[in-house]
Design a protein around this nucleic acid. Structure first.
Length: 1018
RNA sequence: GCGGGGGUAGCGAAGCCUGGCCAAACGCGCAGGACUUAAGAUCCUGUUCCUUAGUGGAUCCGAGGGUUCAAAUCCCUUCCCCCGCACCA
């Protein structure tokens, strides 16, 4: 079969017949299937794209055949940076560049056989499309969802323009490799996406989307409850957001974002140089870049006043604080936040513990008792280190079954150090204390002290006590009567110690210091000492509110959408700056504001080089005005394109409401997880905003989302032009035909998993295609064959279910099995072969159309009805019997090999005795109730089978271990094997005899089991 | 750093949610055989190790623990890889 020829033939026929065009008039149920539209890059469409579109195509074809009115459109996200880069580098106009790329894409997509409704195609670079961007922008502005604010941008002084993060390489401009990028703050347009943060978050759960995407969105929106606290700096109030007001007494410094617009207000003359040097290290506004830098900062010279302690604390500029999140400044609590901890260590800032890890005994004799009073006690724990070896002193408390380090109370007038030294001397006897160093944290415990009949709240200061020598004085009886002490190797300590607080201490000591970020008891926190830190969050917030020093608030990680770009190839933002009236929106009737073709590239913002464009009239006063030269982020275009597909030729409005009502929401949206957060959030936001503008009547754009996995090249990285690891569909198509490529892409891996491109396996799919084609050389008969019927019906059933759930790879395996089965037969039936073609056609549509025509059909297979299956015809029994024959054959081969028989004379097959079938059945039934061998044995022995007791005892465990799916009877099995006798004879070219086990005296015949006849070869 | 996903036989990849039918589908590769003058194509069989007339056993799903009568599957720890992080789209 000439694949190339038939591909062209059917692609043309489909197009001529307008087969895939959809309309709103149909009475069928609608189905809107959409793939994320591509940015048409110059390098064209590679296998990664192809995989994406084939997923949607198969589903669309499947749904059409199942009687749905399917809308399956394609468009191009045509505005954007690469076209502009090409203009600067290669001198091509972005429009030409884009048009060429789109035409190439369309050609490639048609060659893949995708069943798009091409009449609905759209390109976002057409004024007929982007005029509606401008329209929506104005609508959002009217709604108060658009505002302006300063934001940091990458600036190249040589290009005299703003750079995208992508255009910044290692802090240098992409065109001027010797020029460092500067961070500038410019007025930018923002859209208030946060106005919908709550709704976006709440509606996430109900979506039929992959859980991981929903999770990512939730984390991206990132709702957290916290408190805004006012800190005074240089006499001015700075409000900061924190989720941990409980740690406010532990604040030892503040960090303001390096990108904070008001940073310089805080920097004193003396520190200016230092801060500026620090800021230079920031290479771009990209968060990824910033986060990859070491956590660094520079002292601003200013001090903040802690509103509760009134302490003066230094303010640093830091590269790990995000300017847009919260207030762009954080209070740093190094004792209880790991990042702050590391920062404090680095800059030698004090660390102040305000939360003590607290270990509460909740069970056993020592469990805290609510009915008893609590008494607090200051104590000390000492980890005592051996003078020579790496050993530590531990105590075994006989009465309490505690195993601990040296513990003791702090007496009146004693310092904790003095106490621990005294305790060590008294309890261990060793007298030569070389050093006493505090470790980590104060630790609290709460338990019921039986001997005192009170709840004890122990507050432990913790120390490492190193001994200098073995100088020893026998301890007094009074101190040692409760416990035995001994030295233990370092490795054995964690297995030995059994008090949680001691264990914790040991870990802190061995792993080195770190911040304690868990819950605990407040210490060093004035009036809040002693309360639980979780409760303290509330308590301290209330306190701050009462004193008007702060208030509880909600915070989202989601930020408002910065939509303006200082670039040419985008939608002009419809505003002018009038000398008199200021910022004025362009009236709707003046839209579209056409992007001028005539501009210069590479010298600042191209739009500013076209005077006609820039010089405008003020719509309000008619006076002189300057047109806005910022354009829109291309995410704006992609936030509503799915609506335009419903009515892409409307020149009066963005879409007719009734058409959108008919098609929307999208029933299946297919795309990569890389859009999990941004595009999908913006699109959801847009729909909600348009709904509130009265343009839509639904809440969510995409009912079901399907994430295809990423295709990796042979180097293991995502297939992309820039990686240089792309494979083009044409290459494979030329060699094997596009249908083979389609089957291969869908067969190798589940569509939602990442997969590695490896064209070695494609020969398997090529063989499969050939097998399908060769089926048509077989004689087609009308014979009734239950096995054939069963396999066909079962395959229809499984393939239908698997396409529905988009497990295409598994569906193809079922199809391959059916084809293999059909190939092995002399004849096939019309019903089976037609069904096969129909359920195969979504995967390889061209070949199936061709074969369908060959069968004498006139219409398109693509518009045929999906075959139904008859559950009653699925006959597991006959399939199982067929399996027995296959297994028997394989067993014969094994025996031949093992026994080194080259030319067998006779093969005898013994079918198992009937009682064994009865036994199997009984055991399989019993297995539903229990897996206990004894119980099953008893049950079997209670029946007439008892007389085979000896054999039964031996057989039951094996049956349990490997229970058969089906248990038939001797009669059926005998019949089947007798029927298959001839086949086996032909296969092994020798005589075959089939007998019942009982009719033979041969010892080997006793090996026969249900489903597994005994074999003797001579 | 934060967030998400993954690691299964020589390779690609199912299975994991909902534990047992799992030495683990399917394809490639490799080996043997059939057909053929031969090659290719096609078909059949095998493909962890030991053992064996079709059997039985050991080890096994990144590593290490745990739960369970039973773990690729559930839980914890750990290593490695990939993806996203707001001006790439």
């Amino acid at each position: 079969m000439d694949f190339i020829k038939i591909q062209g033939k059917w692609q043309k026929k489909w197009e001529d017949a307008k087969l895939f065009e959809s309309n709103e008039g149909s009475k069928k149920k609608k189905f809107y299937c959409l793939e994320m539209f591509p940015y048409p890059s110059a390098s064209g469409l590679h296998m990664g794209h192809a995989r994406n579109y084939i997923i949607g195509d198969i589903y669309s074809r499947f749904k059409r055949m199942n009687g749905f009115n399917v809308l399956y459109p394609m468009g191009y996200d045509a505005l954007g940076l690469p076209a502009e880069n090409a203009a600067i580098k290669a001198g091509t106009h972005p429009r030409k560049f884009t048009e060429d790329a789109i035409n190439n894409f369309i050609k490639q997509q048609k060659e893949i056989g995708l069943s798009y409704d091409w009449s609905r195609m759209l390109k976002t670079c057409d004024p007929e499309y982007y005029r509606w961007n401008q329209y929506f922008f104005l609508k959002l502005y009217e709604k108060g969802l658009v505002y302006r604010k300063k934001a940091p941008v990458n600036w190249c002084p040589k290009c005299n323009t703003v750079l995208a993060n992508e255009q910044v390489h290692n802090g240098k401009c992409w065109r001027h490799k010797d020029t460092s990028v500067e961070i500038k703050h410019l007025e930018q347009w923002f859209i208030k996406t946060t106005a919908y943060a709550d709704e976006l978050l709440e509606m996430t759960d109900a979506l039929d989307w992959p859980e991981r995407i929903k999770l990512m969105q939730k984390n991206w929106i990132g709702k957290s409850y916290g408190t805004d606290i006012d800190f005074e700096i240089n006499g001015k109030k700075w409000s900061i957001f924190t989720t941990r007001p409980d740690t406010i007494y532990g604040v030892t410094f503040m960090v303001v974002s390096a990108q904070h617009p008001r940073l310089m207000e805080l920097v004193t003359k003396e520190q200016k140089k230092g801060v500026e040097a620090f800021l230079k290290k920031i290479k771009s506004t990209s968060e990824k870049d910033i986060e990859e830098l070491e956590k660094e900062g520079a002292f601003t010279g200013s001090y903040a006043v802690n509103p509760l302690t009134k302490d003066k604390i230094p303010v640093y500029a830091g590269n790990f604080v995000i300017a847009e999140y919260g207030s762009g400044m954080v209070m740093a609590v190094p004792a209880h936040d790991q990042r702050d901890f590391e920062f404090a260590k680095k800059y030698k800032i004090p660390i102040k513990q305000v939360i003590a890890p607290t270990f509460i005994t909740n069970a056993g004799h020592d469990a805290v008792r609510k009915d008893k009073p609590t008494s607090a006690r200051d104590s000390a724990i000492g980890i005592v280190k051996h003078w020579k070896e790496d050993k530590y002193f531990v105590l075994d408390w006989k009465e309490f079954s505690w195993k601990s380090f040296v513990i003791g109370g702090i007496e009146k007038g004693e310092t904790p150090e003095e106490a621990v030294v005294r305790e060590v001397k008294e309890e261990t006897g060793y007298q030569d204390i070389k050093s006493v160093k505090p470790i980590g944290f104060e630790i609290h415990t709460k338990f019921f002290a039986r001997h005192k009949d009170v709840n004890r709240h122990g507050k432990f200061k913790t120390f490492l006590v190193e001994l200098g020598s073995d100088k020893y004085k026998k301890p007094e009886e009074e101190h040692t009567k409760n416990h035995i002490g001994k030295w233990l190797e370092k490795e054995k300590i964690s297995g030995y110690i059994n008090l949680e607080d001691n264990k914790f201490l040991w870990e802190a000591y061995t792993k080195g210091e770190s911040a304690y970020t868990e819950e605990g008891t407040l210490v060093n926190s004035g009036e809040f000492n002693g309360i639980n830190s979780r409760e303290a969050i509330d308590e301290i917030s209330k306190h701050l509110e009462k004193k008007k020093l702060g208030k509880r608030t909600l915070q989202y990680k989601l930020r408002d959408w910065l939509v303006s770009r200082q670039r040419y190839w985008g939608t002009p933002i419809p505003f002018v700056y009038c000398d008199k009236c200021g910022l004025v929106p362009v009236p709707e009737k003046e839209l579209p504001i056409i992007l001028p073709e005539n501009v210069k590239f590479g010298e600042g913002n191209p739009l500013e080089t076209n005077k006609e464009f820039v010089n405008a009239k003020c719509p309000k006063c008619g006076g002189k005005a300057r047109r806005e030269t910022d354009t829109m982020d291309t995410f704006f275009d992609s936030s509503w394109y799915f609506l335009r597909f419903c009515d892409n030729k409307n020149s009066k409005e963005p879409f007719a409401k009734e058409k959108v009502k008919f098609w929307m929401p999208v029933d299946l949206y297919v795309g990569g997880a890389e859009h999990a957060c941004m595009h999908l959030i913006y699109a959801r936001f847009f729909v909600k905003a348009l709904r509130d503008l009265g343009l839509l009547k639904f809440n969510e754009p995409f009912t079901k989302l399907y994430n295809q996995g990423m295709l990796h090249g042979t180097d293991g990285f995502v297939m992309s032009k820039s990686r240089g690891n792309v494979v083009l569909p044409e290459e494979i198509s030329k060699k094997y035909g596009i249908d083979t490529a389609r089957v291969f892409l869908m067969f190798v891996a589940s569509p939602d998993k990442d997969m590695l491109w490896d064209d070695k396996g494609i020969s398997g799919c090529s063989k499969f295609m050939n097998k399908v084609i060769s089926l048509f050389e077989k004689k087609i008969t009308n014979e009734k064959d239950s096995l054939l019927e069963s396999k066909t019906n079962r395959t229809i059933k499984e393939v239908t279910e698997k396409i529905e759930s988009m497990q295409y790879n598994v569906a193809l395996i079922d199809l391959m099995e059916l084809v293999k089965f059909l190939s092995s037969r002399e004849t096939v039936t019309m019903q089976s072969i037609e069904s096969l073609l129909l359920i195969l056609s979504p995967f390889c549509p061209h070949v199936c159309e061709e074969l369908w025509e060959k069968l004498g059909n006139r219409g398109f297979i693509a518009s045929e009805k999906w075959p139904s299956y008859d559950e009653k015809k699925i006959n597991l029994e006959s399939e199982y019997l067929e399996d027995i024959i296959a297994n028997t054959k394989s067993d014969v081969i094994t025996v031949l090999e093992l026994a080194k028989i080259e030319k067998p004379k006779e093969i005898k097959l013994f079918v198992s005795d009937d009682w064994k079938y009865k036994l199997y059945k009984l055991v399989v039934d019993k297995l539903k109730e229990t897996r206990d061998v004894g119980v099953i044995q008893k049950a079997v022995m209670a029946t007439e089978l008892k007389k085979f007791g000896k054999d039964i005892i031996r057989m039951i465990p094996r049956i349990i271990e490997n229970p058969p799916k089906i248990v038939l009877n001797q009669e059926k099995e005998l019949k089947k094997i007798k029927e298959s006798k001839e086949r086996i004879e032909n296969e092994f070219k020798c005589k075959v005899e089939v007998v019942k086990e009982a009719d033979s005296k041969e010892q080997k015949a006793r090996q026969a089991l249900p489903g597994k006849p005994a074999i003797i070869i001579s």
